[in-house]
Design a protein around this nucleic acid. Structure first.
Lengths: 161, 161
DNA sequence: GTCGTTGCAAAAAATTTGCAGAAAC
DNA sequence: GTTTCTGCAAATTTTTTGCAACGAC
């Protein structure tokens, strides 16, 4: 746990690392690049695979360490899925959450809202907990995958005739 | 994934297993008992340790399998914490979530609310996702731990005098 | 008696640690 | 030149699988 810089409003950047006093290395730049460009959430394994294109020979260990660092700096966010545990998605919003497509894993951010604040306030009042953090993720099917499944559905129906 | 029975309204029960056509065995009864009685969230490891009192020699493998089964039946709920990945808490409410104490891991359930529905509706509208599931967990300090830390705080202050 | 379940041993995955060499600054 | 990082090898930890024996129904 480090959290020196404030979380970003904007995509994960190299500046954030430097401002926090960390060195800007080839592996880190590669990982940052991969995460900024992904539209989805990536596991450490997937990050390594993709980052290797930009930084050949990058080690899985470095990926783990860098992901932990970036997450602590608030540049990326840990994403928990029902079973697959722990992938990472870029954090563009300081107080954001992700909707994740259960088909293609595309992740779209949305901002924390007043309604959520209301939920938290209610729970705090009713349970007596002092609530200081929350984890919200929505899961579903993204527009692109919806269209695709419509197409498949139609093909299936046609075939059945 | 199984989901034969409807999720419960009430604590995890042996009936739920039988109604779904599963056998009621000693290990399963032990695990059910442990989870019904815990006020917190437990990892598979912790479940084994505690269940072993009621069912000596119970295997970790059985614990894993039973937890997965009970979660699919909706009797218990998977709890994701920021780093500690995958513990389980009893599910008394069909559509509930948990507030988890970051100090003692006590977990208290609260029902899904309209406000949350509003959040989901907004996101669906704005992103085009078809949202069919969500993960919400609140984290903080429970009343008991708050008091305890107040006491420690006071002791510390007294000492400083 | 049948068939679902269990526990074991072992395999497979996922994650962490120690350390010498490489490379930012 | 210093100090931080990196990659490797190896250790740990977590979870899954195959299978013979067991026990619920």
């Amino acid at each position: 746990m480090i959290s020196i810089t404030a979380p970003p409003d904007g995509p994960p950047t190299e500046r954030a690392l430097q401002q926090a006093g960390f060195r800007l290395t080839r592996p880190r730049m590669a990982i940052l690049r991969i995460l900024s460009e992904t539209g989805g959430s990536l596991t450490p394994d997937e990050v390594q695979e993709r980052a290797a294109v930009l930084c050949p020979g990058i080690g899985l260990v470095t990926v783990y360490r860098t992901l932990a660092l970036l997450a602590d700096l608030g540049q990326i966010r840990r994403v928990h899925e029902e079973d697959r545990c722990l992938a990472y998605a870029p954090a563009n919003l300081a107080h954001g959450h992700h909707v994740v497509c259960r088909n293609c894993r595309r992740a779209v951010e949305f901002p924390g809202s007043e309604d959520l604040g209301a939920v938290i306030g209610d729970v705090a009042r009713e349970t007596g907990f002092r609530i200081d953090d929350h984890l919200l993720e929505l899961m579903g099917i993204c527009p692109a995958c919806q269209r695709q499944s419509d197409v498949e559905q139609r093909a299936f129906t046609d075939q059945a005739r």
